[in-house]
Design a protein around this nucleic acid. Structure first.
Length: 563
RNA sequence: GCGCCCGUAGCGUAGCUGGAUAACGCGCGGCCCUCCGAAGGCUGAGAUCGGGGGUUCGAAUCCCUCCGGGCGCACCA
């Protein structure tokens, strides 16, 4: 069997690596018969001079082989040269160094890789449906005010994660929970009522614990336009439910508008109140009770959270018979765990005390290891060197809409997702709206626009040939090959983002792709007189543009063709 | 007090299930447009990876401990 040409399909980088790995296995079996079959994994070396890939198989083998890693690596390479000389067609370099074996792929591998991207078009990097269902919850806010900065972050992180998962073949269901049960809705109703009365009577007292800020006033105006003054003399018991519901509906509608404007779509807006009304809360609790994970004390029902590593047991039903928020979460998570293979909650920084009990719940409900809770850390807003105050009590709320108004969706989405979610974020509004090279968003978008500009200057005939992808043999310059290698990383980056719940790696990858493109652009003139070279480089440009557009789309950022 | 997160160059950060001389951006010093978009490229200086132990052939990465900073510790949601 000749492992290099098994069929007509060109050999791709991953084929070459697989061939190499099995060859190493054979070489090791011949050289060190007493050693177990080697684990041959490849990593990207830190330094370009070490080639495209490296394997540490020799380092791992050193112990059982009782030889120094350098010797093992050298012996393996010598054995490969003796028995598998054809490997030299796949790799331009196979070098034992300090225990590693460094590999550089022959240019033809990268040419084939680019050709494959061109044939795949904008489906490059996409995985087939894998039949796995994921439930992703994020954003969720109290329906008592506008969305604020932290929801910007959880939405950016969540939506990018959702899109990345869809792209890797998952069936993703995105959900938002409306916390519309409990006392806060009444507070909202009273606050809204006060604003309503103040329209006619400015001195009407505002509740002590009411929601400050003036965002309720326009809602009160709409209510008054519809209902007139007919609630002025009503009893509280009559107007309170009405004003609470009216306020909730109005605010949820506003939140939805904001979120959609931010490029995020939810499949479900789950009302907490509905969970209670439909009896789902009761059913969820019963599941816990039947499992023996609860007990009663002082007239209250407790969840044995400590049995799952939480600090203390948690109240599900208060002494007065009213359920807590956690009771609703039992029901909601029970439902999500039943219908999804993987459940992910993305919560704000004030919730990390909550991880333990949620995970305990998942265990108790019979789905251990199925729930991930991701905490997005807090955000400090700056404008240049000046801190932006976000005091809620003082009514100086900085809303997500304010942010979008000031810096635009593109910059906001990118900045919120740029850092690891668990890392606190300093968001500089001045930098985010700056249209300069200090701004990472523009750096990436510029790459995309620059390609569009070059493609516009090319002839249609050249572009057709480039898209056909069978004349890429001219790609051989270091910056061309480095760019091709970077583009080939896309599927792995997406996979990693999904596995590690680390969407910020997409932002970094976007910059890496743009950077490699800019270097290529500086080193290689694309529209040269050499026809074959021109077409090959146009092909590389098209593939790069596809990858940039894909990554920007996953990040929720537009990919402009001019700027 | 307990729990979670963070501590990497002047600043902001990345370092994926441990691997080679610790990477990127900003800032600071040089250089590059008679050529496809200079919103770009090249290059220099700058790091005891918070401290100390441990595991390992090998630790920024894993374990322990201490020190800083943030947040959370409700029969609120």
């Amino acid at each position: 069997m000749n492992p290099i040409t098994t069929d007509d399909r060109p050999v791709l980088p991953e084929d070459a690596l697989a061939t190499f790995a099995s060859a190493v296995g054979q070489a090791v079996a011949a050289l060190f018969p007493q050693a177990p079959p080697p684990v041959v994994e490849f990593e990207a070396p830190r330094r370009a001079e070490f080639g495209d890939f490296a394997t540490n198989a020799a380092l791992r083998l050193a112990k059982t082989a009782r030889r120094a890693p350098q010797e093992v690596a050298a012996a393996v390479v010598a054995q490969l040269d003796a028995t598998r000389p054809e490997l030299r067609e796949l790799f331009s370099e196979i070098v034992p160094t300090a225990g590693f074996i460094n590999l550089r792929l022959a240019p033809a591998m990268w040419q084939a890789s680019v050709a494959q991207m061109l044939r795949a078009g904008d489906r490059f990097g996409e995985s087939a449906r894998n039949g796995k269902r994921v439930s992703l919850e994020f954003g969720s806010a109290n329906p008592t005010g506008p969305l604020v900065v932290v929801q910007g972050r959880t939405c950016s992180v969540g939506e990018t994660l959702a899109d990345a998962m869809r792209f890797s073949g998952y069936d993703v269901f995105v959900e938002w929970i409306i916390n519309d049960a409990g006392g806060q809705l009444e507070t909202l109703g009273r606050s809204l009522y006060a604003r309503y009365r103040q329209l006619a009577e400015p001195a009407f007292p505002f509740p002590e614990d009411g929601y400050p800020g003036d965002y309720l006033t326009p809602i009160a105006q709409r209510l008054r336009a519809a209902d007139g003054d007919r609630w002025f003399d009503a009893e509280e018991s009559a107007w309170l439910p009405y004003f609470s519901d009216y306020g909730r509906d109005a605010l949820v509608a506003e939140q939805r508008r904001t979120v959609e404007r931010f490029g995020v779509r939810f499949d479900l807006w789950q009302s907490e109140k509905e969970l209670h009304d439909s009896g789902k809360v009761k059913a969820g609790l019963q599941q816990l009770i039947d499992g023996g994970f609860t007990y009663e004390r002082d007239g209250a029902l407790f969840f044995k959270a400590t049995a799952f590593g939480d600090d203390k047991d948690r109240v599900l039903i208060r002494g007065d018979g009213r359920p807590t928020y956690l009771a609703a979460d039992v029901a909601y998570h029970y439902e999500k765990l039943q219908r999804a293979d993987r459940v992910i909650d993305i919560l704000g920084p004030d919730h990390h005390g909550y991880i333990g009990r949620l995970q305990g719940l998942a265990d108790a409900l019979g789905y251990p290891g199925r729930l991930d809770v991701l905490i997005a850390q807090q955000i400090a807003l700056m404008r240049g060197s000046e801190q932006v105050s976000m005091s809620k009590r003082a009514g100086r709320i900085v809303t997500l809409d304010d942010i979008i108004d000031e810096v635009g969706v593109d910059a906001a989405r990118f900045f919120f997702v740029m850092l690891a979610p668990e890392s606190p974020l300093t968001f500089d509004l001045a930098l985010a709206k700056e249209q300069s090279n200090d701004n990472p968003v523009y750096y990436v978008q510029y790459g995309h626009a620059r390609i569009a500009s070059v493609l516009k200057n090319a002839s249609g005939e050249d572009l057709d040939l480039a898209r056909a992808a069978d004349t890429l043999g001219a790609l051989c310059f270091p910056s061309e090959l480095a760019l091709a290698r970077r583009l080939a990383e896309l599927p792995h980056v997406v996979q990693n983002v999904v596995d590690q719940l680390a969407p910020h790696r997409l932002a970094r990858y976007a910059r890496d792709v743009a950077s490699d493109f800019h270097q290529f652009y500086a080193e290689c003139k694309i529209l040269t007189d050499d026809r074959e070279q021109r077409i090959a480089r146009l092909g590389l440009c098209i593939a790069t543009q596809t990858v940039l557009a894909r990554v920007l789309a996953l990040l929720g950022v537009s990919a402009p063709t001019s700027m």
